[in-house]
Amino acid sequence: MTKTLATFTGRMLLVGCGNMAGAMLDRWLAAGLDPALVAIVDPFAKPREGIAHFAALADWLAAEQGAEWIMLGMKPQQLGEVADDLTPVLTGETHLLSILAGVSLADLALRFPAAKAQVRILPNLAARIGAGVSAFATLGDVDAAAVAGLLDPLGTVVALADDSTMDLITAFTGSGPAFVFRLIESYAAAGERLGLSSDDALKLAIATFGGSTALLADSGEKPGVLVAQVASKGGTTQAGLDVLDEGGQLAALLTNVLRAARDRGRELADIARGDG
């Protein structure tokens, strides 16, 4: 069934519209969101047809336009710069959405107590094509059906009981696409070093990763089951797996990658609160 926003109502203000917020907006527009309901406060935002674009928050405030939905999509360390100006336009009808890494629901509630609800969302870039992952948690008098309807067109949606694991999920799914892209890039580079042309190596790497993840998702099996279907004792696949699995080095490397990204999220939270 097509996930549509053609019946979505309520004005939306995007405070910041960089890569991630822009990907979400592009998908929402493709899903039928009326661009006349959207305003953007971001002097660097990519123009979107039919959307009112304001270079600065002061311009939007001067226009005296309300918004039932306000999404924070700038850098988390910029929260202090916009909080004071944004506070007067938040009302008991406003859902405050945030995709700011490291900024907790408690932080949002402290900064913007007048909002009807605070919704912390962790999307990823594949939302642009409706294949993303959006984990979210809420605080306050949230319209759960409306929030779910807004996130559904972006891809897989995971509702969390609270935001206690959000820093890890930021690293795991939010940063995850970049890690996967780097793995594909490195896989292609390895093929090129061993004799493939750069074009063939990248094309084959993309197809191999894409086909493998699609098969895994379609099969409903654990990854190890499919590993066993590809590998045979003493064969070529097992020879490569022996290198990957030696000393648990791959798992250790990925754990360190996620830990570094998670910890940086916590540092950004301290900066956003003015503690850093």
Rank of each mutant, 00 (worst) to 15 (best):
K75N: 10
P76Q: 13
P76L: 12
P76F: 11
P76Y: 10
Q77H: 13
Q78K: 14
Q78G: 04
Q78F: 14
L79H: 09
L79T: 10
L79F: 10
G80C: 08
G80A: 13
E81N: 15
V82C: 12
V82A: 10
D84I: 00
D85P: 02
D85L: 11
D85C: 03
L86T: 04
T87C: 07
T87I: 03
T87S: 09
P88A: 11
P88Q: 11
V89T: 15
V89N: 08
L90Q: 04
L90N: 01
G92S: 12
G92W: 00
G92V: 07
E93I: 02
T94Y: 05
T94D: 07
H95V: 07
H95E: 09
L97T: 13
S98H: 11
S98F: 05
I99M: 13
I99G: 02
L100V: 12
L100P: 08
L100G: 12
A101M: 05
G102V: 01
G102D: 07
G102M: 02
G102R: 04
V103A: 06
V103R: 01
V103W: 05
S104Q: 06
S104V: 00
S104W: 06
L105D: 05
L105W: 04
L105G: 10
L105P: 07
A106V: 00
A106T: 03
A106L: 01
A106Y: 00
A106G: 08
A106I: 00
D107W: 02
L108N: 06
L108M: 14
L108Y: 01
A109W: 01
A109K: 13
A109V: 03
L110G: 14
L110I: 01
L110C: 11
L110N: 08
L110E: 15
R111N: 07
F112N: 03
F112P: 05
P113Q: 08
P113Y: 05
A114E: 12
A114W: 07
A114S: 14
A114T: 09
A115Y: 13
A115V: 15
K116S: 09
K116Q: 15
A117P: 11
A117N: 07
A117I: 13
Q118I: 02
Q118M: 12
V119D: 02
V119Y: 09
V119G: 06
R120C: 05
R120Y: 08
R120L: 09
I121Y: 09
I121G: 06
I121M: 14
I121P: 02
L122D: 00
L122V: 15
N124L: 08
N124K: 12
N124F: 12
L125C: 13
A127L: 13
R128W: 01
R128H: 09
R128I: 14
I129V: 15
G130Q: 00
G130C: 01
A131D: 11
A131E: 14
A131V: 00
G132Y: 07
G132K: 06
G132M: 08
G132P: 04
G132H: 00
G132N: 09
G132A: 07
V133G: 06
S134Q: 10
S134R: 05
A135P: 02
A135I: 02
F136V: 03
F136I: 05
F136W: 13
A137I: 01
A137H: 03
